[in-house]
Design a protein around this nucleic acid. Structure first.
Lengths: 111, 111
DNA sequence: TGAATGTAACTAGAAAAACTAAGTACAACG
DNA sequence: CGTTGTACTTAGTTTTTCTAGTTACATTCA
């Protein structure tokens, strides 16, 4: 992993929500997805991912069900709830604002 | 504070370094600067700021000295070291990459 | 005069998120 | 039948930020 996780911290929930808005999914798949999408530059540690699932389910942004795999390892699928969808939209707005603020605070120029 | 600190987390050090690259400064001033620059949208809590100073001084990115105020509250000034300068440049690169990665992971479009 | 406000730094202890470092279980493949 | 891949889980730790204070001096103004 080349990019420090501190920079991605705070985005874990949004990343998960986004993926679940595309389709119901499960931990292992989401993890692989992130690695592929970022060409291995970033990966969520399993423990991080699964504890995020637990947190998000507790606050009602996602819900889960066991898949009906007849073969292979069992999978716990997650769905995003309507509350979760709203949270995603809000997080996106916050992110746009954060990008702007961070740029203002860390870039050259400006007294 | 309107923006969640989780999104700014990880940028505290860079914000401080940037400010010190402009001029030697001290905690209170940096705090006020951030509030003004962001129109009150964001503020570093004092404890956060001072513990960041301690951390950065420990790893040698900044160093400090007492100001020679003859009146008013004493000030501890901080300077950025050459190591700190390099760290700032690296952090900026990481941030540019992080922006790109985060956008790729949380935005619509893309399977 | 003395109460409030502003400047300035500091601390102890708690919380949250992510981490390390495991373990369990099943399937496939050579 | 040993290794690799899929898939989930947990215990305990680290790091950063937070809450909630304290101390100290200066100025303002009622």
């Amino acid at each position: 992993m080349s990019i420090t996780s501190d920079l991605l911290r705070g985005h874990t929930d949004t990343i998960i929500l986004r993926r679940l808005m595309h389709q119901d999914s499960y931990g292992y798949e989401i993890n692989k997805y992130i690695q592929e999408k970022t060409n291995g530059e970033y990966e969520l540690k399993e423990a991080t991912l699964y504890s995020a699932f637990r947190r998000l389910e507790e606050i009602g942004w996602i819900s889960s069900y066991w898949g009906d795999e007849t073969t292979g390892a069992r999978r716990r699928y997650y769905t995003v709830t309507s509350t979760g969808r709203k949270a995603y939209e809000q997080n996106m707005k916050d992110w746009e604002q954060a990008k702007y603020l961070i740029d203002a605070l860390i870039k050259e120029g400006g007294e």
